[in-house]
Design a protein around this nucleic acid. Structure first.
Lengths: 196, 196, 196, 196
DNA sequence: AATGAATGAGGTTTCATTCAT
DNA sequence: AATGAATGAAACCTCATTCAT
C-alpha cells in the first residue's frame, strides 16, 4: 500500500468496483477514472498502462489478504489449527468483500497469459504460507512425512479456490465461511472413514 | 457429435488447434475458418456465432472425455478404485492431448462470465459421475457418512483441476499421470498421519 | 496503378483530396474513407495501415508523374531540349493538379523520418532521369565535363522544388509554367553575363 | 536575443537539442523543460505556447546565422565574391552545428502549414541578402540584366538548401563545405560549356 | 450449400496547457 | 517567479457478422 497517495488508492478501489460491476472486458479506463473521480489522463500518472492497474489491484488486495491471514496464524500453536484458520480467513475475507471475490475468482482470470503470469507471481507469498504449514505439520508428526509438498499445496489451494469460485458463480446465495469445517476435514482426513 | 456433418467437425477441430496455438484472444473466426478450410461465412451456417463455436468445442470434447471415464469406471468394483481410475483417466486424457489441455485449462477460462456459465453447464455430467462415486463410497462405508457431497465434489474437482493447470502452466515439463497416487491419497486420506 | 481495383484507386484519390484540403495532421482515416465512399474498415483491406496509404499515394502519383515526363522527353533530340521539357512538364503537371501540388510540396513533408525515407525512395527514378540528361549533355559537349553529377542533380531538383514550393505557399497566385524559360536559363547558363 | 533572460536562452538551446535528438514529433514540452532544467509551467512564462518556442528557436538561430553571413560579406568587393562567401558560410555554419542542421533541414519541416509560414517569415532577411547580391551583380554587369530576381533568389536558395538536406540525410558522411566551388560554379555559370 | 468483400462500432493513451500553491 | 499535478480531447485499427452472388 503506497501511503500518502490518495489518488493511487482511489483508482485501485474504483478499479475493483468497476470490474466487479461491469466484468473484465467492459472495464474501460474511462469508467475507472470516472468512478475514481479523476480525469482519464490522471490514471497514467499513477499506472504505466491498463494492465498495470489490474496487476496492482491484485498485488494490493493480495498483499492485504495475505497479511491478515499471516497475522491470524501467528499465534496459533500447531499446523492443524493454522490450516483451519487459513481456510476460515480465506473464506471469510472473500465472503466479506463480494466485489473482490468476483474480481479474483471470475474477472481477473479472463486476462491474457502475460497478465496471468504476473498475477500468479503475486500469489507466491500465499503459497509459501501454505507450504510452511505443511512443513510444520510434518515436523509435528501430525501430517505424513512422505507428502509431495508442491503437489499438496496445489491440492489445498485448488480445493479452496474451487469452493470459492462455485460460491461466487452461485451468486453467493449461501454462507461461504460455514464451509470451513468440512473443507478442513477433507484436507486433513480426506474422505476415508476413520478406523478405530 | 453431429454425424454426417463433416464441416461441423472440421470447424470444431480447427477451433481447438487455433485456440491452442494462438490463445483465446487471438483466435479470430477468420483463422478458424482458414484452418478448417472453409470460408468465413460458412462458419455461420453451422454455428450461431463465435461463442457457439467455443461452447460446442467444450461440449464435444467434454462429451468424449466423460464417456471414456464412465466406460473405464464401469467395471471397477468399489468407490476407491473408481475414484483412482477417474483421477488417472482425467490426468491421462489431458496428458495425451496437449492442445485440449491448453484450451480447457488456460484459454477457455479467459472467456466472459456468460460463456463460463455455459461451459460449466457442460461440466455437469462429469460432476454427477464424481457425486455417484462419493455416494457409492458412503454406502460401502469406506467414506464417512457425514460428507457434504456438493462441497466434497468441488474439492475433488478443484484438486484435480489445480494440478492439471499447474502442469500446463509449467509447460508440461513433467509427467502428469504419475501424480495420480499422491492425488488419490490426498483425496482419500488427507494430510493426516494414520493412527495404527 | 493497380488495375481492376476500383476501391484502391478511389481511396488513393480521396486521400489526395483530404490531405490537400485538411492538411497532413488533420487527415484522419475516417475522413479519407468517407470521401472515398467506403467504410473505415475497408481501407484496411487495401492498405496495411495509414502510412501505407500515404506512401502509396506518393508512389502512384510519382509513377504517373515520371512516366509522363519520360514520354515527353523521349523524342527530344538533345540534352538542352530534354532539360527544358523536364522543367516544363514538372511545372505543368503540378500546376494542373493543385491538390497534388499541395500534398507533395507541403503536406507530405510533415511526415516523420521513416515515411520521408520511403517517399525519397519513390523519387529515385525521377532523379535517375535527371542524371541521364546531365550525362547526355556532357557527351554532347554542351555541358561541362567536370560536373559533379549527384551534386548537380541535387541543384537542379532543388531549384525546381523551391520554385514550386514558393508558388504553392503563395497560394498559386501566379502562373507556374511560365517560369520555365527563366529556370531553364538559370540551370544552363547560371547568372553570368555571357561574353561575346 | 533577449538579454538578461537566462531561462529564455536555456529553453531555446534545450529545444534545439531535444528536437535534434528526438525528432520533431517526439519533442514534448516536458522534455524541453527537463533538459532546460525548469518546470513545465515555467516554459509558459517565457513562451506563449509550443509553437512560439519553435518559431523563436528558428528566429534566434536564423538571426545569428544571417548576422555572421552579413558580416563576412561586408568587406567583399563584388557580387561574385559575396555570393561565394554566402554559399561557403551557409554550408560551414550548418556543417559546424549538426544539431542545428538536423533541426532546420529535417525536423522543423514536419511542422504544419501555419508554423511553416512563420518560419518562412523569419527567413526573409536572409532572402533579402541574396537579393542584394543579385542586384549588385547586375549593376556590376557581371550578371545578366534580365534576371527575374525573386525567381533567381528561389533557385539559389533551393540549390543550397537541397545540397544541405541531402548531406544531412546521408548522415553528414562527407564534407559539406568543400561543395562550395561546385555550387558556386553552377549558380554563376550553369551547366553550359563556356564558349571561348 | 458456399463464398468472401464489405461493414462500422469501440477504446487506450498521449501531451499541450492550466492554475493552486 | 516558479512549480508540477491534473486535465481531457482525439484517432487508428480490429474483427465478428452480413448478404449479394
Amino acid at each position: 500500500m503506497k501511503k500518502n497517495k490518495p489518488k493511487y488508492n482511489q483508482i485501485i478501489e474504483a478499479a475493483v468496483e468497476v470490474i466487479a460491476e461491469n466484468g473484465y472486458h467492459a472495464s474501460q479506463v474511462a469508467k475507472i477514472a470516472g468512478k475514481a473521480g479523476v480525469a482519464d489522463g490522471t490514471i497514467y500518472l499513477y499506472f504505466k498502462n491498463k494492465e498495470d492497474i489490474l496487476v496492482s489491484v491484485f498485488e494490493e488486495k493480495m498483499g492485504q489478504f495475505i497479511e491478515k491471514i499471516a497475522n491470524a496464524i501467528r499465534d496459533k500453536n500447531n499446523a492443524v489449527e493454522k490450516l483451519y484458520t487459513l481456510i476460515e480467513m480465506h473464506f471469510r475475507q472473500l465472503s466479506e468483500d463480494h466485489h473482490l471475490a468476483v474480481v479474483t475468482q471470475l474477472e481477473l482470470r479472463q486476462s491474457d497469459k502475460e497478465l496471468r503470469l504476473k498475477i500468479n507471481h503475486a500469489l507466491k507469498p500465499y503459497l509459501a504460507v501454505i507450504d510452511d504449514i505443511i512443513k510444520e505439520g510434518i515436523e509435528e508428526k501430525v501430517f505424513r512425512d512422505n507428502l509431495n509438498i508442491p503437489l499438496v499445496r496445489q491440492m489445498i489451494f485448488g480445493t479452496m479456490d474451487e469452493i470459492v469460485t462455485n460460491w461466487v458463480m452461485k451468486e453467493q446465495k449461501y454462507d461461504l465461511t460455514s464451509q470451513t469445517p468440512d473443507a478442513h476435514a477433507f484436507i486433513t482426513d480426506g474422505l476415508s472413514l476413520k478406523m478405530s
